[in-house]
Nucleic acid binder design. Sequence first.
DNA 1: ATGGTCGGCAACCGA
Length: 271
Amino acid sequence: MPLTISTWNINSVRLRIDLVAKFLKATRPDVLCLQETKCPDDAFPLKPLAKLGYVHVATNGQKGYHGVAVVSRLPFEAVDRRSFCDKQDCRHVAVTFGERAGLKDPATLHNFYVPAGGDEPDAAVNPKFAHKLQFLDEMRSAAGLHAAPGARAILVGDLNVAPLEHDVWSHKQMLKVVSHTPIECEKLGAVRAAGQWVDAMRMHVPATEKLYTWWSYRAADWAASDRGRRLDHVWVSPAIGDRVSAMTVSRAARGWTQPSDHVPVTVKLEI
DNA sequence: ATGGTCGGCAACCGA
């Protein structure tokens, strides 16, 4: 059965709920993972989503900052929320799809929002960068996060690291810029290696080609300068490493009225 | 080399 999953850092789900609806109508994924919802759970805009058939929603939100959610046409068997770095930040939610969704073999979907890390890439002087590194370390060693041998799992989200040379517009100019420093790239690589996760986006676009999911708000003309970064990711466990039949980055969404600075990424899984 | 823009929420913090 085909299962399509999208991930999008929406930068306020309430402000941009019409853009979410526009995307859902156009793309019709089975599941949409959102980050930076900036919305307490009791204020999540459920109605417009239900109207489009997305009646199953797992939120992990807080007032003002961070926040993640899974919005789905298919029902869940279970929902899990984890905290990291002994903080109350809402940066993770996971759901498991199974028989109720029509899946013979269950599949767990993790949705992450990794800390951005501030401006200065020095953990000794910048606590936000230290937090980001610690968060990645905890992801690497988190019990039960990585799929058991043979198990089906997907990990998506705004991981706030662009690990490969062509995940940024200029590798050389980005080496000391938070999101592309060697230590971040190494630590994200260690998370991926710990679960033997397969980079589904790079399965479909060679590492030699530029691939971005984020463009700064500060650029005068984001499309013309095209100084993007691939901060958003889709990983799949080895058991479904060969089941990703399509991958799309919705670059056009960056040009919509009052856009998020991130665009949706969608994969189609044959599971 | 520097500053450039957003959103939440009501003065700045986080990105």
